[in-house]
């Protein structure tokens, strides 16, 4: 009886193995699939990754140190808290500074007038709050 069971088990295992071989065979005969896998594996991006693998591993090692992970998380929460519109304004301001080749001198009266503009005083307020937070 035990011998029969053993033989049955072996026959079932063999059958399972044959089914797996059939599946692998199906995959290996699937030209479209193999073409897609080849295109995905052999690409400019994968070569770049392979070429820079030592640097990437070093970078990952540094980034995943506990103290750095905490800093990254803080940076991410800072990014999330930033107002998109404000950032766009800031970026535009930087672009404007870059575009202005020469800084024109400003008279004291013009400076006082400019300081009283609501948008400028709002910006100064933000800067002052930031400086205050950094100093605390």
């Amino acid at each position: 009886m035990e011998e029969i069971n053993e033989a049955e088990l072996q026959s079932e295992s063999l059958e399972r193995l044959l089914h797996l071989v059939e599946m692998v065979n199906n995959i290996l005969k699937d030209e479209e699939l193999l073409k897609a896998i080849s295109k995905l594996v052999v690409s400019e991006e994968t070569f770049l990754i392979i070429d820079r693998l030592p640097q990437l591993i070093k970078l990952i090692e540094q980034l995943t140190r506990q103290e750095n992970l905490e800093k990254i998380e803080l940076m991410l929460s800072l990014l999330q808290s930033l107002d998109k519109q404000m950032l766009e304004k800031l970026s535009n301001a930087f672009k404007a500074i870059k575009a202005e080749e020469k800084v024109k001198p400003m008279s004291i009266s013009k400076m006082i007038t400019t300081l009283s503009e609501p948008e400028v005083s709002k910006g100064l307020n933000v800067m002052l709050n930031l400086l205050k937070a950094l100093g605390s």
Binding site: H19, L20, E22, M23, N26, I27, D30, E32, L33, A36, I37, K39, L40
Partner: peptide
């Protein structure tokens, strides 16, 4: 994308199993 194509084909090739 290509990954989804590969997954689709793998599903088809594994169908009988």
């Amino acid at each position: 994308n290509t990954i989804n194509f590969i997954m689709k084909r793998l599903f088809a090739d594994a169908y009988w199993d």
